[in-house]
């Protein structure tokens, strides 16, 4: 997954690299996400996200927003009208809240990264009304937000903050495996939902991994 080895400021170009990287990593993991979702949901997560981020690429090809927030807002609007499943409004809300938290800044600093991830996490919680332990993407976003906050306060660089978030999101996604789903379509399965990672938590980890790689951050 050599999405981008570029280093440099977290500017609009970084945000565009992030989204191109996300589209690539989602396409590469489309089958995995479909399989995970088939096990405990309706098997559409991989296809829906692949379609959504594919549409994002088309938008970015035609438009070049000037700030990171403008890129994320474009992503939010595109995902909301193309993804279709629950991931549409959830990721739409996440990117929209992230964009709002960034304001019109041209370059995102470490605290800005942590604030952006916290805003995204809070938006998802508000929209989906899920809590930690419900076996949802919240189980990846919450540790990611906490790790980003800790790293930023410890004086890490912006790419390091992103890498800390991505690693925590991966760990959070893996930790959803034994959980019993309490939200979404998977909750209809009850105890049968245990034994599989939550596809939304996995896709969250992939998205944050792409963010870190686009900034040159080291992801474990």
């Amino acid at each position: 997954m050599s999405v981008a080895d570029a280093t440099g400021p977290l500017d609009a170009a970084w945000a565009v690299r992030w989204m191109r990287g996300t589209a690539q990593v989602v396409a590469e993991n489309r089958a995995l996400l479909i399989d995970l979702d088939r096990a405990i949901g309706d098997a559409d997560h991989g296809e829906n996200l692949d379609r959504g981020f594919g549409a994002v690429l088309l938008k970015l090809d035609g438009d070049a927003p000037e700030t990171p927030a403008a890129v994320l807002k474009l992503v939010a609007m595109t995902l909301m009208s193309t993804v279709g499943g629950a991931a549409g409004p959830l990721y739409g809300t996440a990117f929209l809240r992230a964009a709002t938290s960034l304001g019109d800044t041209g370059t995102v600093d470490p605290a800005g990264v942590a604030g952006m991830i916290a805003a995204a996490r809070d938006g998802i919680v508000a929209r989906g009304k899920a809590e930690v332990g419900d076996k949802t993407m919240v189980d990846a976003w919450t540790p990611a937000s906490e790790a980003a906050e800790t790293a930023a306060q410890a004086g890490a660089t912006a790419p390091e903050v992103l890498a800390a978030a991505a690693n925590a999101a991966h760990a959070g996604a893996v930790a959803t495996e034994p959980l019993i789903a309490r939200k979404g379509r998977a909750s209809y399965l009850g105890e049968r939902s245990a034994g599989h990672q939550d596809p939304g938590a996995v896709s969250t980890a992939l998205i944050l991994q792409a963010a870190a790689e686009a900034a040159g951050g080291e992801v474990a």
């Binding site: 559409d44 829906n48 549409a55 909301m80 009208s81 193309t82 279709g84 549409g88």
Partner: peptide, 16 residues
């Protein structure tokens, strides 16, 4: 439904 990107409808909901 939602748009499938090719002018048809598929299962899902659409903001638009």
């Amino acid at each position: 439904g939602a748009d499938d990107g090719e002018g048809r409808s598929r299962i899902g909901t659409s903001f638009e």
